[in-house]
Write a protein that binds this DNA or RNA. Structure first.
Lengths: 218, 218
DNA sequence: GTCTATAGTACGATAGAC
DNA sequence: GTCTATCGTACTATAGAC
């Protein structure tokens, strides 16, 4: 438990930054430790010293970003709920999505990394860590949505949340395409525009009438 | 241009089948030619004989599935349009989505493979082949949607189509989770249920009122 | 057309000097 | 804590016998 030297912290963060970008861009398997250490301008052996293996490096890369985003989501939702009334669907979605957009503004690769981990880089350990944390967040948000969408069965809420996650994930993964979306707009304006459009779109899908004749079964 | 022997065709298809499943499950980079030839029970050298390289094998794997799905999409859309009237949004979505669900029923890994190629296995050549073909399909469908959604600007239609592709892609990529969605339902019933729910959800999102005060600018 | 054998390369991880 | 050097392994691709 000795405090690491400043240089060590710097090396560690340089590795994390480089790995984050490369894992997001190319994926875990297509990224070698040599590519990471070259980009980070550190020695190859530093990775195995500071992190034990490539796999645990991936976990560290994710852990650094995941906790703040998920914490911010829950914080926003709790804050919105403090009035005691059922929330507008748009508010719930804002709490879920905005933290991801905001971290993407400073480091645009982070949302893409998270999308990869969501269902693609299927390395059991890392994916489980990621998915379990995200699953907890989703359960919390599903509770909020249930109150705002009393016309839907639990089954339908679950399905529509999955559809919504898909819209969000694809939008973040393809954010390069999206930045070109608003014709003539600068990038600074592009992301808020997409965020508003996305929330508006998802809210309409969630609010759609129930498809099933059979009522809520719980 | 000599017709290959039956054995050769068999070997080629065995390789394609094994590669398709492995690329879909583990991704391109995490799949070695040895894994493919072992699963296909063919010799290692057969891959480089029938296909030139691993990269062109991926293109062959995709090409085998892509053409029929995209053709079926366009065929359904043209058929629906034959009446001359603007289509219901649900019909347009059915033409876009149903062919993917149907191929997924016989080979459940195919939709997952397509999702990977959409934005994840970022090998330039293969991805470009895939995306160019899909882009042509999307342009055709965007034309149909434009007629059915006259309240939206071109910009908003483009954005909402991207959101919809995201819902579709995530639903297909996570189809394993989705099969467990309808509680108590067998798998044979699960996919039609998900298909109906998905189309209903996306249609509502597409039909949402325009967000922008500024009118259509074309 | 199918095989064995192997060339040539890149990888993850570690030992050991400093 | 940081480096060089390297071990052992796995990979793609191909040459050449059958």
């Amino acid at each position: 438990m000795v405090a690491p030297s400043e240089h060590s912290i710097d090396t560690k963060n340089r590795i994390l930054d480089a790995a984050e970008r490369l894992f997001a861009d190319k994926g875990f398997d297509a990224t070698s430790l040599r590519m990471i250490t070259t980009a980070a301008e550190v020695n190859l052996a530093a990775v195995n010293y500071h992190f034990q293996s490539k796999e645990t490096l991936l976990q560290a890369v994710y852990a650094r970003r995941s906790a703040p985003v998920n914490a911010k989501r829950l914080e926003l939702l709790t804050q919105f709920e403090s009035s005691g009334e059922p929330l507008e669907v748009e508010q719930i979605l804002d709490a879920l999505i905005r933290p991801l957009f905001e971290i993407g503004e400073s480091r645009e690769c982070v949302p893409r990394l998270m999308v990869r981990l969501l269902y693609l880089d299927a390395h059991e350990a890392s994916r489980n860590v990621f998915q379990q944390q995200f699953h907890q967040v989703l359960i919390r948000f599903q509770g909020a949505l249930r109150k705002s969408l009393p016309h839907l069965s639990e089954k339908e809420i679950t399905a529509r949340m999955q559809f919504s996650i898909g819209s969000l994930a694809h939008t973040m993964a393809a954010s390069r395409n999206l930045q070109a979306m608003p014709a003539g707009g600068q990038m600074k304006e592009a992301l808020p525009w997409v965020l508003r459009q996305l929330i508006h779109y998802i809210a309409a899908g969630l609010r759609a009438p129930a498809l099933e004749e059979s009522a809520c079964t719980f």
